[in-house]
Simulated scan of single mutants.
Amino acid sequence: MREIVFDTETTGLDALRGDRLIEIGCVEIINRIPTGRAYHAYINPKRSISPDAVAVHGLTEAFLADKPCFNDCVAEFLEFVGDAPLVAHNASFDRGFINMELRLAGKPVIADDRFVDTLVLARRRHPGGQNSLDALCARYGIDNSARTKHGALLDAEILAEVYVELQGGRQALLALGSLGEESGGGLTIRKVGARPEPLAPRLSPEARAAHRAFVAAEMGADSLWAKFWPVETAAE
């Protein structure tokens, strides 16, 4: 399953009162594993930036003066996102800014049900706990030492790790079949089949014989237990 974990930085806190996007960072994950594909853009908002916001992310009007407007990068952003679910921490905030910019650019907005909110997931899993991104990093042992200021791409990369933990942790991708490898969606999947060397039996021949006699007596020769009993070897 393809998902996009993303974060934004803005000129202020209220999209309905004229604040604008100034940075978007997205990372792609497939089956809970980052693929290495990312999208990142700084955006010239064509307006002033709140000093409180600058204190959080460090992005100034002078730095953004030569950056493209949202209209100039919206096509690349939408192409990267595609139709994947969008994962964000406190997603209602980021959703409001993304959809506001899409409206101003004359593009269809992204439906609410495509957004996954890791803050909501964290509150369900850890009710009463601290669920900021930094607190979740501390809880799950995720290194966020590079996060001296908020940055959209770095925060998206960190959030991708947190999201995996909130979903129960990274699981090995197993596919039944013969031993081998196949590549798909940027991932290499190792198929797992029979062991090259079977494990040694843990039951003694006497215990196996007693169990087989019990199955025959209590369940009958036509039972599934009897039908799929392994063929005995001469050594047994």
Rank of each mutant, 00 (worst) to 15 (best):
E79C: 11
N99G: 00
L102Y: 07
L86R: 05
C73W: 01
F115Y: 09
P108K: 06
L86C: 09
V87P: 08
S92Y: 08
S92M: 14
E79P: 03
P108V: 05
N90W: 00
A75R: 02
D112M: 07
L102A: 02
V87K: 08
G96K: 15
S92K: 12
N99W: 04
N71F: 02
S92A: 13
V81S: 10
L119I: 00
V74W: 00
A84F: 12
D113W: 11
P85H: 06
L104Q: 12
T118L: 15
D112F: 05
R95W: 06
S92N: 14
L102H: 00
F93G: 11
A75M: 00
G96W: 14
H89L: 03
L104N: 10
T118V: 10
E79T: 09
F115Q: 05
E76C: 05
V116Q: 02
D117K: 06
F93K: 14
C73T: 12
E101Q: 05
F115S: 10
S92R: 13
A88F: 10
R114Q: 09
N71D: 14
A88M: 05
D72E: 15
L86Q: 02
D113F: 12
N71M: 03
V109P: 01
D83S: 12
F97N: 02
G96E: 13
G82E: 14
N99D: 13
P108H: 14
G106H: 10
A84M: 11
E76I: 08
L78H: 13
T118S: 11
D94I: 11
L78N: 15
V74H: 02
A111E: 15
N71W: 05
A88S: 06
R95Q: 10
C73H: 06
L102T: 01
E79A: 06
F80G: 01
D83H: 13
E79Q: 09
D72F: 05
A88H: 13
R95P: 07
K107R: 13
L78Y: 15
A75K: 05
M100C: 11
V109M: 15
E79R: 07
D112P: 01
T118E: 15
D113G: 07
G96Y: 15
R103P: 03
D112V: 01
R95Y: 05
M100H: 08
F115D: 08
A111M: 10
L119N: 02
C73N: 07
A75Y: 01
G82V: 09
M100L: 13
A75Q: 06
D72L: 08
G106C: 08
V116C: 04
D83F: 11
A111L: 07
F97L: 00
R114M: 10
N71V: 00
A91D: 03
L86D: 07
R103A: 07
F97M: 00
F97V: 00
E76H: 08
V74F: 00
E101T: 01
D117G: 01
A84I: 09
I110Q: 01
D113C: 09
D94T: 15
P108F: 09
V116E: 04
A111Y: 07
G106V: 06
F97R: 02
V81Q: 11
A105Q: 00
D94V: 12
E76N: 13
E76S: 13
M100I: 01
A88D: 03
H89P: 04
D112I: 01
L86E: 07
D117I: 06
S92P: 11
P85R: 11
N90H: 06
R114Y: 08
P85T: 03
